[in-house]
Design a protein around this nucleic acid. Structure first.
Length: 419
RNA sequence: GCGGUUGUGGUGAAGCGGUUAACACUCCGGAUUGUGGCUCCGGCAUGCAUGGGUUCGAUCCCCAUCAAUCGCCCCA
């Protein structure tokens, strides 16, 4: 057990790091272009922040949070998502004072006590964006387009953008009620899960895998028939802007977000080959959250994307990245005097800016040469008694096997010419 | 939280209730004196996720635990 990482956690090993850096670079790059600034919030917060922000009754809050008492008796929770924290930071630091629209992005670890499976971890990483302070649907569109452009810039194909509107506190309750009314006499025809959804979140019944193809579903009330004027116009405007920007999307009336704070626009980007965990990014507008957390009413939009899922998707598409850090030279040293000479030379060369390595295991010359060959170095620098005596090194070009004996000055010249 | 499948060395893996746990790759060593990439030779699991149990005997059977994976749920 000692040698096993806790369930649902993963080491990112050196051979994977280049993929992460590739993604992180794309994130910084696109956020800069779109005018989003990076923010880093604590990895844990007061439990109450998430309870209030995400909402009691949601799965995330009810059964997926890593919550514990710290030594001072406070209830602390490892963040299951970052929107609530960003909003908290926005309020605490009065970022709203600087400008009316504050645009932020983040990346980092999130924690959810879920049953792990492919693309679902207990510690996972999200990249997300939050635009706080503007109700204009153009911001919804901007955020969605940013997400799409980001994923495309990674080289992903076959992405599917789904959008919907979930209404606002004015019209959603109306819809909710209509749904409940509609299903009230069909309860016994619904599956177990849907019977609990009936009270908890009737919108989800529409999305149920087992029930959604039942005949009467077609007659279920549609949200678009219940929207208030404001929400309807908002949604149309978002679609208009997406069309204008040449972003393909489908309106999916069954798309419902699991977190309480969403209003109006909801969207999700799927990468189908991922299977059950196909959502690589999801988000929407949350005009009520900031007030819920104690600020003055402030509209906002955002999304989050799952880095690990993106990595799986990249892998499925064969888009792996590696930047091999090629060695300029590998030093082969035989004998204890030569070893010291070689070590000093290695340090000197590194200080000159070269990428140099040597073997510390006192292995045979043959073995060291083998290692030099495998290291992909340009040159092997061979140092034995003779070289030490004459203060020179034998420089062997590993690709054409030519070698010559040179002094350190000449060595620097040759290496410089190469790089 | 529920259900299915799986778990053999650094890796990919074969294997059977009974004793040297195939094979390939990687890795390590060697093929005369200070030289790699090819070739050849040799070495590398007292151990078959962990802990119990059944049995004369278990890596192969049973149970539990842990983990991975797939689906449900949820979501990124």
């Amino acid at each position: 057990m000692l040698t096993n990482a806790p369930r649902g956690t993963k080491d990112v090993l050196p051979n994977q790091i280049d993929n992460w850096i590739f993604i992180e670079n794309k994130i910084r790059n696109i956020c800069k272009r779109y005018g989003y600034e990076e923010i880093r919030t604590p990895i844990f917060e007061h439990t109450e922040l998430f309870q209030r922000g995400i909402g009691e009754g949601t799965d995330v809050v009810d059964k997926e949070m890593y919550t514990f008492q710290d030594r001072g008796g406070r209830s602390i929770t490892l963040r299951p998502e970052n929107t609530a924290s960003v909003v908290r930071a926005y309020l605490q630091n009065k970022l709203f004072a600087d400008k009316s629209l504050v645009k932020l992005f983040y990346t980092g670890s999130m924690f959810r006590y879920d049953r792990p499976q492919a693309g679902r971890l207990r510690q996972f990483h999200q990249f997300g964006v939050e635009a706080l302070g503007e109700e204009n649907p153009a911001v919804d569109a901007e955020v969605i387009i940013l997400a799409v452009d980001f994923l495309k810039s990674l080289g992903l194909n076959d992405l599917k953008l789904k959008i919907n509107t979930v209404g606002c506190p004015k019209c959603r309750p109306v819809y909710r009620q209509k749904l409940q009314h509609f299903f009230s006499d069909k309860l016994d025809e619904l599956c177990q899960d849907c019977q609990t959804r009936f009270n908890k979140n009737p919108l989800r019944i529409l999305d149920c895998k087992t029930d959604s193809n039942k005949e009467f579903m077609a007659d279920a009330p549609k949200i678009k028939d219940c929207l208030c004027d404001d929400c309807r116009e908002h949604f149309l405007k978002v679609q208009e802007l997406l069309n204008a920007a040449d972003v393909d999307f489908v309106v999916d009336e069954r798309l419902v977000r699991g977190l309480d704070y969403y209003t109006k626009t909801a969207f999700e980007i799927q990468y189908q080959p991922l299977g059950a965990q196909s959502a690589v990014a999801g988000g929407g507008r949350y005009d009520g959250l900031i007030e819920e957390i104690g600020g003055s009413p402030t509209p906002a939009v955002g999304f989050a994307a799952g880095i690990e899922r993106i990595l799986v998707a990249l892998d499925l598409q064969g888009l792996t990245h590696s930047t091999d850090n090629k060695l300029d030279a590998f030093i082969v040293a035989v004998g204890s005097e030569a070893e010291i000479f070689a070590f000093n030379l290695m340090i000197k060369l590194r200080r000159e800016g070269f990428n140099v390595a040597m073997n510390f295991a006192k292995r045979s010359m043959k073995a060291q040469m083998k290692q030099a060959g495998k290291s992909n170095a340009q040159y092997a620098l061979i140092i034995g008694d003779d070289e030490v005596k004459n203060d020179v090194v034998t420089l062997k070009n590993l690709s054409n096997s030519e070698q010559e004996t040179v002094n350190v000055e000449k060595l620097l010249n040759t290496l410089n010419k190469q790089s």
